[in-house]
Design a protein around this nucleic acid. Sequence first.
RNA 1: GGGGGUAUAGCCUAUCGGUUAGGCGCUUGUCUGUAAAACAAGUUUAGAAUGGUUCGACUCCAUUUGCCCCUA
Length: 295
Amino acid sequence: MIIVITGPTCSSKSKIAIDIAKRYNGEIVNADAFQIYKELDIGTAKPSSYDYRIVPHHLYDFVLPNAKYSIFNYQNDARICISSLIKKKKNVILVGGSGLYIKAAIYDFKFNKKKPVDLKEFEKMDNQSLHDALKKIDQETANKTHVNNRRRLLRAIAIFLENNETKSELEKKQKHEVIYKDIYFFVVKINRNELYKKIKERAKKMVDKGLVQEARMLVKKYGKDNNSLKAIGYREVIENPNLADDKVLELIQKNTCHYAKKQLVFIRHQYKNVDINFVRDAQEIIDFIDKHESF
RNA sequence: GGGGGUAUAGCCUAUCGGUUAGGCGCUUGUCUGUAAAACAAGUUUAGAAUGGUUCGACUCCAUUUGCCCCUA
């Protein structure tokens, strides 16, 4: 079986996952967009080396900070990983807070092959012209995409140029359903104020442990134009090189709370055609699964 | 003690003798190759206090209070 555990950042997902893995002969697969990176140790709240020894963890700490890694790579890696665990008769515990990554892993998302295309002409356009250009290519996607969202407009145009198939056509070929049958989906529920408090405490601990130094070291080693360094905790340090540590901490705390809030929105609306079960701790997951597996 | 400046929403910053202030925050939402990303919608009827000038004052004047700067 596959057990998905998601929820906002700092809601003890990783800890719960370990308990569940131990209980059900499972192994843990990461669904977090930044815990995949090596060397981003303090700011991403990765499991500890002790955790790794208790239960096998997959797709953590394996991508170089200067590598390009996208949802496409993740989907491949996650699917391969899940299949091999199923073959080994292991239960899969998919844990993480990156909603899109979870969707790509368990839904029938399909990505076409990416080919080099020339977007220079489009990149020069203003937002309105870009939106008009997409309208000519893919009316449906244009209607769904806000004029100001250049990134999405450009990507939708690129999708068409790459394979001569529009984004809306590509999506119509999908059923938008979960591809695994034996799956449980849990969201860790936590009171919002309590969560914000925990986030602030954790951020403080991270800065005390040397997050600022780690961020500066990574910039020096790899340059600042890497996706990995857009992570909260690193971005704030890099964008404000002259800011005092306590001000940087405040920024990190604020942005992490924002992030948690956005995750909650994603959870509320984006997981279609699955039963979402809200739980507070590992025990509630165990109770739920035991009840359902006994039939 | 003397002189000067300042007071605008939870915070920061404008403007103006008569009209919707803006940003941050907060709330809600969109989401298929940067997703800890990108983008959108909503939100508090603010003018330190008192008095005056005026048809009309957040804006001009006076006093008081708080804060900041200079000075013996």
